[in-house]
Design a protein around this nucleic acid. Structure first.
Lengths: 150, 150
DNA sequence: TCCAAATAAGTAACTAGTTACCCAAATAAA
DNA sequence: TTTATTTGGGTAACTAGTTACTTATTTGGA
């Protein structure tokens, strides 16, 4: 009887709120922590330069939102942004000493919040939820790929 | 490997985006449509006055966010707000002629978006997803009830 | 009865998200 | 080679969300 859109919005807000409390210990917000985690994870898994563009596509977030996020992360000293030598349109994003290899810690905090939210769910239910969420995200990825006219 | 918080944020954004397209036909945003749906649904299911307070608790949204949302819905002529005669601190919210009984239509649009997002999921998987989301929302409701010190 | 605590709603200032528009650099075509 | 298109990033203006603070009304206790 409660619309699905409302459920998702409530879960999203509750998740962000819980993660905000953990992120505050580093002087960050939940969203900033999540993006920092993505930068650190990409840095650990690819040799390529990381561009703002990549983060926008990964998080399905608009240009200006990512611009402001990265400006805040840079001003707080968690990332560095320099123009690419290969193509000066691109902004190359790297972690600083302060945030190098931080993705494991951030992933652990994400899992803690997930566990808190799923208090009453069995291990099977949690796994099922992760699987279903993956499938939907994959659908969304697929759709945005097939409509590049924008 | 993708953190759950990121999955939820991506799904939430995709849902809002799809619903925004439908809501635009009425000159509303997805969030405004959702709140209007809640007002209309409460109006149809209870005899009590509907207060801003009730909507904040239902949607797990902060005071100021709801204040601004209701101001926009009122200025667009979709709801009316008057102080309660019983207790003038309360704001009584009602649908206008324009929005009376609109909750069924809004729920149908929500279900359409849900179906689009779940394109590749079986009926069992969709039902399972709804059930899991309900359980988490219930957990969140429970927690916020047990910590009223704020 | 009067004053203090509780509570509904509003305001200020901020982060996060959107669309729509601008600029600069690279690419491709004349 | 010069011009036009494409593409990455930035800016403006808005909605939506947050916390922290203020205001006003009701309630309850001295």
């Amino acid at each position: 009887m409660m619309p699905f859109g409302l459920k998702i919005a409530i879960i999203n807000r509750a998740f962000r709120k819980k993660l905000d409390e953990k992120a505050a210990a580093m002087g960050l917000t939940a969203v900033q922590l999540r993006v920092l985690g993505s930068v650190s994870r990409l840095e650990a898994t690819t040799e390529d330069e990381i561009h703002q563009n990549d983060l926008e596509r990964l998080e399905h977030v608009s240009h200006p939102a990512m611009t402001k996020l990265l400006q805040r992360l840079e001003s707080k000293g968690f990332i560095r942004c320099v123009p690419s030598a290969r193509d000066r349109r691109y902004k190359v994003i790297t972690c600083t000493e302060r945030s190098a290899g931080i993705h494991n810690m951030i992933l652990a905090q994400d899992e803690e919040v997930f566990a808190e939210l799923c208090g009453t769910l069995s291990a099977q239910e949690r796994a099922s939820l992760q699987h279903l969420a993956d499938a939907i995200v994959q659908n969304i990825d697929q759709e945005t790929l097939s409509e590049p006219e924008n």
